[in-house]
Design a binder for these strands. Structure first.
Lengths: 327, 327
DNA sequence: GTGAAAGCGCTAACAT
DNA sequence: ATGTTAGCGCTTTCAC
């Protein structure tokens, strides 16, 4: 059923029906009622594809995540979904599998679908991806980080400040021989920023330079035992793991080895995973408002859609240091 | 840039360019090359919206989940995404928040977008939702369960068989006084089917009728302590919790109370959550191939798109009983 | 407040 | 193998 059928049924032109759909009060009250019942009578459902083509607004926003199976990345998608639902926007989700080429292909496809806005995870997009996006001139939000060379907008946390907060906490507890464990991949700029903040803050606080270790994969628990051996060998008192999975692995490895936490080794993670609060001793960690990240990004996109003159933003959301039993 | 611009640049009609895009070998080899460079020269990107409108195929599949933040529901989305990527399909995700009205609204919106196929979570759709879907005559897959009154296709696990498997396992271990805890909501037919399978199997095995308890929310750990009190009061030897969160809550509550597991109380869950393997004692549970559920649903949709004559399927995927330390 | 005409960018069906 | 014509279902612009 097309808009014209509704018009015929109501004894009006297709145009008036279209107006009713978008600006009901531009149609006379009796005609509003006529159209309403005509729509019900013929069982009309607007073709959003045709609407989008004609109006050049698709009412779709896209979000790209490495994987949706990881709650860390699923939470912002939920936030985005909740943010745009009321406005009648739908969410297109693309999974890149941490692959830049896949990301690029998806961005191209989404632009082809004429999405009204796009959200990207992180800030490590390929040059070609950035170029495509800048050329398309649509609102784009980079999530998690707020880099200096933004594509357009960014909504993230101050990763360096996270490292700082943990260093200050360790110092306040009296730990002096610190260590930091990060994810070694070059693309993981979040991990790098957190480490840097930790190191700089330790230096400012007059502590000896922390031991720096790294692991191959972000969520690698298997490497924890050798990590613990290394930490003990160097007489480390407190370790900052740039990720909860890793921190939990370290806690479990310590227990197996009979290392007392936090007496012999204090541990802090980042992420506030569900597990962090459930293990014993409960993990000190940093809560990052993942859901809010997506929610704010979505709200910003809606604001941009509503007002074409609005510019990009660089928004930083507060994290929270959750001091528990491991430090 | 439109397809006509490419045609002009290549000295050919728009139609030939369109043909090249979809059936390259229907275009002569020299012209293929001409079009290829013309596309690059003008920086052409097909408008998938216009394509979809004209061809009546959007190359979009939609999936509806209660919440994407729960890995249980995110995993099938990842499977779907992986299944359809190669074929050039995109995934539209809708979150219903366990609300039938929200589900109905989303189904309507997705139909308006002329999605080529749709995946729904569970089988408790409202009558209006079912009617819309049947009227639209597009491939639909109900996920997780394979009900008798399917809308179209279904890909799921045999929930009753899960209950059966746990009952048999308990019986084999020599437990006689059993209990089952389920989610009380009327809409949760999965939970109900698992309980029923458990009860029927217990009867067949000649065991006394299991104690039946219920909780208000599926992932409610807070109710665990009173649940344990109730179980002990009735002298229950083994409890089947229809969900891992609940089972883990019970295990933790037992530990706090000094109840030995499995000596005093054996526990089994369903879901194979990450936590299940990590707690001590490790939880006996049922692994449901969540990712594969979405993957198979996606593959089925692609098959249906490729061959209009293909009919719906009712597919059941195998689960796996993971016997660990709590039983 | 309402209608007519033109067009969004593409493909289907028919030509040649 | 290629081109022409006529839409897909809607909105935009400009009339009245």
């Amino acid at each position: 059923m097309r808009i014209e059928d509704v018009g015929r049924e109501a004894g009006l032109s297709a145009q008036t029906v279209s107006r009713f759909l978008h600006f009901p009060d531009q149609v006379s009250t009796p005609n509003q009622e006529r159209i309403r019942s005509a729509i019900a009578a013929v069982g009309y459902r607007p073709n959003l594809l045709a609407m989008a083509l004609a109006s050049n607004r698709s009412r779709v926003v896209a979000i790209l995540v490495p994987t949706i199976a990881n709650p860390v990345h699923a939470a912002p998608v939920q936030g985005l979904s909740d943010a745009v639902r009321e406005a009648g926007y739908q969410v297109l989700v693309g999974t890149t599998g941490y692959d830049a080429a896949a990301e690029q292909a998806l961005v191209g496809a989404f632009l082809g679908r004429r999405v009204d806005g796009m959200i990207l995870t992180g800030a490590a997009q390929s040059h070609a991806t950035r170029a495509m996006l800048k050329g398309a001139a649509l609102p784009v939000v980079q999530l998690w980080e707020v880099p200096a060379d933004r594509i357009d907008s960014a909504v993230g946390v101050r990763n360096a400040a996270i490292g700082e907060a943990v260093a200050r906490h360790f110092a306040a507890r009296g730990y002096r021989r610190l260590a930091v464990v990060r994810h070694a991949a070059a693309g993981d700029t979040r991990s790098a920023a957190r480490e840097l903040g930790f190191l700089e803050s330790a230096a400012e606080l007059g502590l000896p330079p922390p031991l720096r270790l790294s692991v191959d994969r972000p969520a690698e628990m298997a490497q924890a035992p050798e990590l613990v051996a290394e930490l003990l060998l160097h007489g480390v008192e407190a370790v900052f793991c740039v990720g909860d999975q890793l921190a939990i692995g370290v806690v479990l490895a310590c227990q197996r080895r009979g290392v007392a936490i936090p007496a012999q080794l204090a541990v802090a993670g980042v992420g506030d995973s569900d597990l962090a609060a459930l293990i014993t001793p409960a993990l000190t960690t940093v809560r990052i408002p993942r859901y809010e990240l997506g929610l704010e990004a979505g709200r910003h996109l809606l604001a941009r859609f509503a007002d074409r003159h609005l510019g990009p933003v660089a928004m930083e959301i507060d994290f929270e240091l959750l001091i528990r039993e491991t430090s």
